[in-house]
Design a binder for these strands. Structure first.
Lengths: 197, 197
DNA sequence: GCGTCACTTGACGCAGTGTAAAGTTTACAC
DNA sequence: GTGTAAACTTTACACTGCGTCAAGTGACGC
């Protein structure tokens, strides 16, 4: 018999590879099984549903890619630096989770489990936005017209995966320009004009 | 026998009403048929596929809601006014097409016809963005660091239906705040700082 | 040898889209 | 009134992809 956790990992890696390929969004359970070299039923043995597989994959990627380490740097920064550091961290992580995120977003309208899982992630990301806006507020850099909540709503929207998709995937921006311009955009909206160029 | 074009309109209106209801995104062909008071096959008699029905609905809404009139005002404006006028026009139109747009976006990953139709619309909207950025450029209000294309890419992204969805549907902003803040955001990113407050 | 765990095989139920074919109703023509 | 044609109904079915079920196989521990 095979090692169960090894098979599980094989399935997760196969699924990730497929999702990262061109037609990744259309990846079916049978494709995953074939790519992993197991039967379709073996996939269901490890993951009850397609949504559960994708959700498990996000966690798998998180641990493999050290998401916590990436975000640690942004938590150390203060004032305007915190905004930049957060955009570096989150913006740099988007391309990593994008393939599976895209699949989860695609099934979200019709699948509560997928929708909730993705919403949870986006809610967690919102905490980072709020912390960055709070950091601006605490050094008096936040525009007077903005509240913590309004600023957070907008930053959370600007840094959405959909916007990354639009700029990088659709418009063909490269990742570094995305980061640079998102920083400029966020600062232009959130910060008093006398606090930046 | 019934009037074919009357039945067609009945189907389109029923479909629109369903899409505008709470669980609109999940609207099936059989739901549309039932709501229109015709058989499921009658729907297929008028629209070969679900995608075709949704695409026809966007056109139907365009004509009923006078989309051309809405955009005419923005084409008349110049300089900074053109940006505001375009955001008023397009931003005001998003809530109108959102229900059917959401359905089209949901099926886009797996349906070429739906994807292409939605992309076409977004490409048309991009023309408006480009015209607005060009208007800024022509009065010397565009930031030196920005090109026409970069500015257009970003404005097109900022004014996406997804961002309206995030702010209005998810964050609960009201429509007028969405418009106001989008204008502020766009100006903050696109315009030289000495051209606005 | 015996059980058990991981997995395979093949079949099936289900939902929703789309197709096919035969029948019904209405209108209009002559 | 008979004929015909268009709009629509009814019933049935094919297809895809998800998820389930049940019986079978192979390896390993004891």
């Amino acid at each position: 018999m095979a090692d169960a956790s090894a098979t599980r990992t094989k399935i997760l890696n196969a699924c990730r590879t497929l999702l990262e390929s061109d037609a990744g969004a259309a990846t079916r359970m049978s494709d995953v099984a074939k790519a992993a070299g197991v039967s379709r039923q073996a996939v269901y043995l490890h993951f009850k549903t397609r949504a559960e597989l994708l959700i498990a994959l996000t966690r798998h990627i998180d641990s493999v890619e050290d998401v916590d380490d990436r975000l640690a740097a942004s938590r150390a920064a203060t004032g305007l630096d915190r905004l930049d550091a957060f955009i570096d961290a989150w913006g740099g992580y988007i391309p990593v989770i994008y393939p599976v995120g895209r699949a989860l977003m695609a099934m979200a309208p019709g699948d509560d489990a997928a929708r909730l899982a993705w919403e949870d992630r986006m809610t967690a990301m919102r905490q980072g936005c709020e912390a960055a806006v709070r950091a601006l507020e605490s050094v008096g850099a936040l525009k007077d017209a903005l509240t913590l909540e309004t600023g957070t709503d907008m930053l959370w929207t600007l840094l959405s995966v959909r916007n990354w998709e639009a700029l990088v995937e659709t418009c063909g921006w490269d990742q570094s320009r995305y980061i640079t311009d998102m920083k400029a955009l966020s600062r232009a909206y959130l910060c008093k004009t006398d606090n930046h160029g």
